[in-house]
């Protein structure tokens, strides 16, 4: 067993677990998008970012690909994590604003504005369909092509592949294929209808139910930890 600290709690994890699996085991919610239990991990969406390390030497890592280590200190709900996560949602929103999954994520994590131009590419390159095709359907019909801003997912030579059996697994798992619901303002880039409408399409937790760290959703319990610095400053003033 490996001992580590997860949000200041001492937890135990088995050898080979990732931070995400450990957090799930202890009932801690970390949002994910490109992660699926039946598929290999990819670490592409960066929604599952967590902060590891102590003091000033902390860094953000994707929890779905980071294996647990002895004595690791993990925080899943610091301000840095929340801000990075919001930024990732905002970036994905700019690529595929018509996706229901991403609009729901935006509502859930309070992304109310989009500072980027909407590109309407309808693919966020999460790679779920590629892994679904190769690992679950044994098809290997689609894959990544080109690189940089030209990167895309397609079949060889952009024609129907002989490997493809039209099983539809890629469309089933695609987070961008399900179109967003028609809220009060369907032309807007950020829907956010779920924030004010009742019933809402996002699962909303009662703030009072918050048990320890409920995914850090409301963020009220998050504060910056720098007691040492403040103490030093106060001492200087005195």
């Amino acid at each position: 067993m490996i001992n580590l600290k997860l949000n200041k709690l001492d937890v135990k994890a088995e050898q080979g677990w990732t931070i995400l699996e450990t957090a799930k085991y202890y009932g801690l919610e970390i949002p994910t998008l490109c992660y699926n239990e039946g598929l290999s991990t990819y670490g592409g969406c960066r929604l599952c970012l967590v902060e590891i390390g102590e003091g000033e030497n902390t860094k953000l890592v994707s929890s779905c690909t980071y294996p647990v280590e002895e004595g690791l200190v993990v925080h899943t709900d610091t301000k840095r994590v929340l801000n990075a996560r919001k930024m990732m949602i905002e970036l994905m929103l700019s690529v595929a604003p018509n996706s229901k999954t991403i609009q729901d994520l935006a509502s859930k994590f309070g992304v109310t504005q989009m500072r980027f131009e909407a590109r309407n590419e309808e693919c966020i390159l999460c790679g779920l369909c590629v892994r679904m095709c190769a690992e679950q359907m044994d098809g290997k019909a689609i894959g990544f092509q080109n690189r940089g801003h030209k990167r895309k997912i397609s079949t060889p030579f952009d024609v129907r592949s002989e490997e493809c059996r039209l099983c539809g697994g890629c469309m089933y798992i695609c987070p961008a294929c399900q179109l967003r619901c028609h809220g009060p303002d369907p032309d807007s880039d950020v829907c956010n209808a779920c924030l004010t409408m009742d019933p809402t399409c996002v699962d909303v937790y009662d703030e009072l139910q918050c048990w320890m760290y409920d995914a850090g959703r409301c963020g009220t319990c998050v504060r910056e930890e720098e007691p040492n610095k403040k103490d030093i400053q106060n001492a200087d003033k005195k």
Binding site: A134, K140, A141, I142, G143, F144, Q145, T155, P156, F157, S161, E163
Partner: peptide, 8 residues
């Protein structure tokens, strides 16, 4: 090797 990997 799957054709798609070679194309990649």
């Amino acid at each position: 090797i799957p054709l798609i990997d070679i194309i990649g």
